[in-house]
């Protein structure tokens, strides 16, 4: 049956329902596009035949292939769109710099899109809250205090806070830090928020 490859693409994303980004399946996309090209060409020649020789019995076949074309189109569009949603989520979860393993999973156009999204978001955030702008990716949960107690889960090296002090984030060390400075590191799993 037609369109099996296209559904395979969709299944691949559906299996990772938590929002992880699988590697861009360039080969799969190419195969679907080839199938579409073949379907289109066959339809074109059959339409011509039906027109010139009056073979109306070909019309159901043309319609059949046309449905398959639309189906392939839908699957690919959904595949690409869902990937964009995942890539957008990465900006919020990881911050503006992505780990290289994830970047390897994106195609060139997706990287370009990610950079554009990053820029749009940054421009928007600069326009908010007066001169300094407002980082809307911070404080996803309402803060209760300015400083929080954190524990390092792995060695992260030196880290500078607002007043210029440099602290060493060493595994299992515990610090009392400004919340807005560590929120991102907590999300990335470098620090752990300790509630006593």
């Amino acid at each position: 049956m037609f369109c099996e490859k296209a559904v395979e693409l969709v299944r691949e994303l559906h299996r990772m329902s938590d929002g992880q980004l699988p590697a861009f399946n360039e080969d799969g996309i190419r195969q679907v596009l080839e199938e579409m090209k073949a379907l289109y060409e066959q339809n074109q020649s059959d339409v011509n035949e039906a027109k010139t020789e009056g073979k109306t019995e070909l019309i159901p076949t043309v319609k059949f292939r046309h449905c398959c074309l639309l189906r392939n189109q839908r699957c690919i569009a959904a595949y690409l769109y869902d990937r964009l949603l995942r890539i957008r989520a990465l900006r919020w979860e990881y911050g503006s710099v992505l780990p290289t393993t994830i970047r390897f999973h994106m195609c060139a156009e997706e990287l370009e899109w990610f950079n554009q999204y990053k820029k749009s978001l940054a421009t928007y955030m600069r326009s908010l809250g007066g001169e300094e702008g407002l980082d809307i990716t911070q404080d996803m949960k309402p803060p209760k205090s300015l400083y929080i107690e954190v524990r390092c889960l792995k060695d992260h090296g030196e880290f500078e806070i607002d007043d210029g002090t440099v602290i060493l984030l060493k595994k299992n060390s515990q610090h009392f830090l400004p919340r807005w400075k560590c929120e991102q590191l907590i999300r990335q799993g470098v620090l752990e928020h300790v509630i006593s």
Binding site: D18, G19, Q20, A89, L90, E93, Y94, K141, P142, P143, K144, I148, E183, I186, R187, Q188, G189, E192, H193, I195
Partner: peptide
């Protein structure tokens, strides 16, 4: 109100 690592990252 505890801040947690993102599910995506841990997975």
């Amino acid at each position: 109100s505890q801040l947690t690592a993102s599910n995506l990252v841990t997975n």
